[in-house]
Every structure is written in structure tokens, then in C-alpha cells.
Design a protein around this nucleic acid. Structure first.
Lengths: 148, 148
DNA sequence: TTAAATGCAAAGGGTTTGCACCGGA
DNA sequence: TCCGGTGCAAACCCTTTGCATTTAA
């Protein structure tokens, strides 16, 4: 039996790594713990910062390398925020998009259902299967559009 | 009468700048010339490079500062490519979006009409007015989706 | 004349790389 | 034992900033 309190799918990461001939290390454990608490999105830099809180000896390159591995395992996916900066989407968050108002600066999630409407529009005309979560859609929210 | 061969709206940039109390300089002329030939998108670095071809003494900071001014004038707009990197959209390109296939790496333009379908989908559900040109939409193209 | 713009150099920020050493399996 | 990982430092890339100097108007 495993002694960790991590929720799925994080609880089996160690075995998943070993099954691929990769290794389970204290540094990776730290990254996993932080990710497990961070449902939503984190930038690389944020993640490094939070790991440092838990283990001050955390080194950035190790975190980034771990993220690469986890992305290969499908446990995180990278996307881009409104400013284009890389951010990591942490599972098991439901597939969703992001809206960002360039005027007021607020952001919203675009839930599965509404995201599907966008996806449908692209699929219908181009056969293009959008990865809705990959980039943050930028524009103006209802209120700002009304006030302009 | 003006001696330049620049197409609108570039032909009147000098006056537009002066009208705002700003100045028309040789360095800015170089940037404008390069932009006028670059309908579509350019990254800052690309622009610097192309300016250097025309004038080897081009300095990056001058180019970036000029881009800021031109964005205020509404002559360029910045957006983000599939990798999140900043790119400048050069007018008078028709408002359009960009699709990028993460699998084969190809990119396509999303013309006005089809972009409108996406915009409608968002407007209907959220009242959100997307700036379709701001970010490159990432996903899988028809062919790659079919082959998977 | 005078404020805007330039040139230069340096900093910046987040991410990546090279390489010797360390330590899981 | 062995190869994957780590730590460290340096490199990286594009962009921004500070400041003295130049120059358009």
C-alpha cells in the first residue's frame, strides 16, 4: 500500500514513471505535490516558486525538466495566457477554454458546453479540431463592449 | 506633394505623427518601409532583422519603440503566435484569425467569414467580443485529425 | 529652442543547456 | 552497476530601460 494522500491521477505517478524506465525522485515528488494542489493553471515560474516554499533547495531546471516529463505522460499540458506566456494546465481539470478581456483585464473560463459551440464552428467550416485550452482568447467582455 | 511610393495607410504616417507632436525620422521611415512590404505578420526580431538589411545601423530599441508608437496610431497590432511569441499584425490586412496545426505544424488563415462564425458563437453565449486576430488558434487540421 | 528620438549598453525575465556528479532501480 | 536525474552556472532570446547625446520642428 502507498503512504501518499495524493488524489488520482497523481497517486500513481511514481509507478507510471518506473514503468517507463524513469525514476521517482524527491524532487519530482515535490513538483507532483505542488501540482496536485494547483488545479487550474500555473506558469513555470509560479511552480518553481511554490516548490521553493516546500523545498528551498528547488532548482528551476529540475522543475522544467519534470514538467516536460509530465507533459509526455499526459498529466499536464502547456498553453499560453493572454500575454502569450507559457502556462501549464493541470489535470484532472475538465477541458475548457479561457477568455480574457483586454479592456478590464478580467478572465473567465469557457466551460465545456460553450467551448463546444466554438469548436463546432471551426469544425464545420475547416474540419479543424481546435485545442480550445491551448490559448487564451482575447477580446472584450460584455460589459466593456457595452460601455464603449 | 509627397515623394514616397508607399501605399495607404503608410503614405500619410509622417503627417499623422506630426499631427500628434511626434517626429518623422529616418529610422521610423525605415521601419515603415519594411512594414509596408510585410503584409501579414512579423515578429519584433524579424522586423529588426529586415530593417538591418536596409540600414545596418538599425538599433533594436528604436524599432521596438517605433512599434509602440505605431500600435498607438492603430497601424499595427500585436498578437501571439502558436508558441505564444509576440507578433505584429500589419495593416491594412483584413481582420482575420490564424489556425495552427500542432501535429503537422502548418498554419492557415481564418478568413473574415469563417472567423465570424467563431465570433458569433462566443457572442451568443457570453456576449464576449473576441479579438479573433489576437491569438493563433491551435489544434489539429482536417488531415491530421483524420489520420489519427 | 526644446522636447522628442536615438544610440548604446546594460538589465531583465523566464526558460534552456552543458556537464560533472549523484543516486534510484 | 548503470543510466537517468540533479545541481549549478552560464547561455539564451527577445525585449525593455536608463541616460547622455542628437535632431526634427
Amino acid at each position: 500500500m502507498r503512504m501518499t494522500a495524493l488524489p488520482p491521477p497523481w497517486d500513481s505517478v511514481d509507478d507510471r514513471l518506473r514503468a517507463r524506465g524513469l525514476r521517482w525522485t524527491p524532487q519530482r515528488a515535490t513538483v507532483i505535490e505542488v501540482l496536485a494542489e494547483a488545479d487550474g493553471h500555473v506558469s513555470g515560474a509560479e511552480l518553481v516558486e511554490r516548490c521553493r516554499l516546500r523545498d528551498p533547495s528547488t532548482i528551476p531546471s529540475t522543475v522544467y525538466r519534470t514538467l516536460d516529463v509530465l507533459e509526455e505522460l499526459g498529466l499536464v499540458r502547456h498553453g499560453h495566457g493572454p500575454d502569450g506566456r507559457e502556462e501549464f494546465h493541470v489535470r484532472p481539470v475538465e477541458e475548457h477554454g479561457h477568455l480574457h478581456c483586454a479592456e478590464c483585464g478580467n478572465s473567465w473560463e469557457l466551460g465545456n458546453e460553450r467551448a463546444a459551440a466554438v469548436a463546432d464552428a471551426l469544425r464545420a467550416t475547416d474540419g479543424f479540431e481546435i485545442d480550445i485550452g491551448h490559448v487564451t482568447l482575447v477580446g472584450r467582455c460584455r460589459d466593456c463592449a457595452a460601455g464603449a
